[in-house]
Design a protein around this nucleic acid. Structure first.
Length: 483
DNA sequence: CTCTGATCATGT
DNA sequence: ACATGATCAGAG
């Protein structure tokens, strides 16, 4: 089938809504692929079964003359009703030996296809792929994000030039990731400026980027909205629903986004954070807090004083969300830690664990995606010696951290120990500190007085326990010089 | 000192 | 009333 215009293509595509893959699989690819776990087959089914491209031509079957590339992508409904992309979208493979001679423009990374036609299906765990239902589609123009893509590309290139292809991680970049792409985790290839054999990797549109795009779409089609968006959006959507003025919503949203669409001059979250903190480097926590809020403390320094500062100076999560697309399409988390002699004084804690976090296998889990993709923006406060307590530490620097495959392999062990402990209902199997060799991720109690975190571990879905990453790993990241 | 389970002030 | 983002504080 051939489409002469964008409109023709979109008109035709409307018919895919509501269909399952089984229903459009006219070439019976699902049967042929034997395993119902072959992800690539879903894209092929849409191309051959729905758009009627000949199978042998499948790899070039996108709508190239329209400048549109087809992506078939799954999403998951979170427990709280919000939506997220199931996976990153893989692009072409990274050629380490060539990238050093390339520029973003010459790489043809996004090629002529600046627009994506994304076909969204609802992924449900433990379900045959044929039964997944296609619920939405959209055109997304990626040229609006080109400056960020370019920046990400340069970052990847620089790591290869520095002979650090083996240290690439998805958390390094904002939208464009470098995800592993070997057939097995043992696959290795070569890089030009180091003898260390790196894992093969491909460019990808990161999960958070796809999630951002999906949520944007859902905000514009509130009939299907079920997720937690910002308070303001909820009100807007409620209003639209109540008054049945749906045709107006496009205008309202377009207006709002153009108003806010003055793009930041910073292209990464860490640049943004550094700029906001600039006037305060070298000052103590109490000095900064007084300067920005007028509040003074003599005793009982709040344990969350750093958070009070970063909320005020950088913004709370939902304020950032409103501020710029960058914050909607990247996954990052702002953390504060005390350091002494460039070493972490404490472990780093994450949010409270829920038993239901561990229902899925590691590969499909929330936590794997989290650690793989999230950039930790770590604001470091220095204590000259152990007598310098909370409140009197000085703002020193900001460091971005992300996790390597090696880290993730160790995290997987921790994850699986919890999974097994839950299955066997045995708290002795939990990954408390030093429960195996070279442990990088551990659990620790996190609650209020009287909580008996471990003994009550199975009582409720919400536990009183959280992940913590070890000081060893933190120190390694802190001293990792790549800036 | 370091380690690890316990606890706190704040925000929603 | 509870989760969050951390630090505290006793034990070793």
């Amino acid at each position: 089938m051939k489409f002469n215009t964008r409109e023709e293509l979109l008109e035709y595509t409307k018919n895919i809504k509501g269909k399952t893959f089984k229903e459009i699989d006219s070439q019976h690819l699902l049967d042929k692929s034997k395993s119902n776990k072959n992800k690539g087959v879903l894209g092929q089914i849409v191309e051959s079964g729905f758009y009627k491209y000949p199978l042998n031509n499948v790899s070039e079957a996108d709508f190239e003359d329209l400048g549109i590339e087809l992506k078939v992508s799954g999403y998951i409904k979170n427990k709280d009703g919000s939506l997220r992309a199931k996976e990153r979208v893989k692009l072409s493979k990274i050629d380490y030996n060539n990238i050093v001679n390339e520029t973003y423009e010459s790489s043809h990374l996004l090629g002529k296809c600046k627009e994506m036609l994304i076909i969204w299906y609802h992924y449900i765990p433990k379900t045959d792929y044929g039964d997944f239902k296609i619920t939405d589609f959209q055109i997304y123009d990626m040229s609006q994000d080109e400056d960020v893509f370019k920046h990400d590309f340069e970052l990847i290139k620089e790591k290869v030039i520095n002979g650090k292809a083996h240290e690439l991680s998805e958390g390094d970049t904002s939208y464009l990731g470098a995800c592993t792409s070997g057939a097995t985790s043992a696959d290795r290839t070569t890089q030009p400026f180091s003898d260390i054999a790196p894992k093969p990797r491909a460019y990808s549109l990161k999960n958070a980027y796809m999630t951002g795009i999906l949520r944007e779409l859902k905000e514009k089609t509130p009939d299907i909205i079920t997720f937690n968006s910002t308070e303001e959006n909820k009100k807007l959507i409620k209003k639209v629903k109540d008054e049945k003025i749906e045709e107006k919503i496009e205008n309202i949203i377009t207006f709002e986004s153009t108003e806010e669409n003055k793009r930041l001059s910073e292209k990464t979250v860490i640049d943004y954070v550094n700029n906001k903190l600039k006037p305060y480097f070298g000052k103590t926590q109490l000095e900064i807090l007084e300067e920005i809020t007028g509040k003074t403390y003599k005793e009982k320094i709040p344990k969350n004083i750093n958070k009070m500062i970063s909320d005020k100076l950088i913004g709370k999560d939902n304020e950032l969300y409103e501020k710029d697309e960058l914050f909607r399409k990247t996954s990052f988390i702002i953390k504060n830690i005390p350091i002494r002699n460039n070493k972490a004084i404490e472990r780093m804690a994450f949010k409270t664990l829920q038993l239901s976090d561990f229902e899925e296998d590691w590969e499909d889990s929330y936590w794997k995606n989290y650690f793989e993709e999230t950039a930790l923006i770590v604001i470091c406060y220095e204590a000259e010696n152990s007598k310098v307590k909370n409140g009197y530490r000085k703002l020193k620097y900001v460091k971005q951290m992300s996790f390597t495959d090696e880290d993730l392999e160790s995290f997987e062990k921790t994850y699986n120990m919890i999974k097994i402990a839950i299955e066997k209902r045995d708290i002795n199997l939990l990954p408390t500190p030093n429960s195996f060799e070279n442990q990088l991720l551990e659990i620790a109690p996190k609650g209020i007085k009287g909580d008996d975190a471990y003994n009550n571990f199975f009582k409720k879905d919400k536990t009183k326990v959280s992940f913590m990453i070890s000081k060893t790993l933190l120190n390694e990241k802190l001293n990792d010089k790549d800036e």
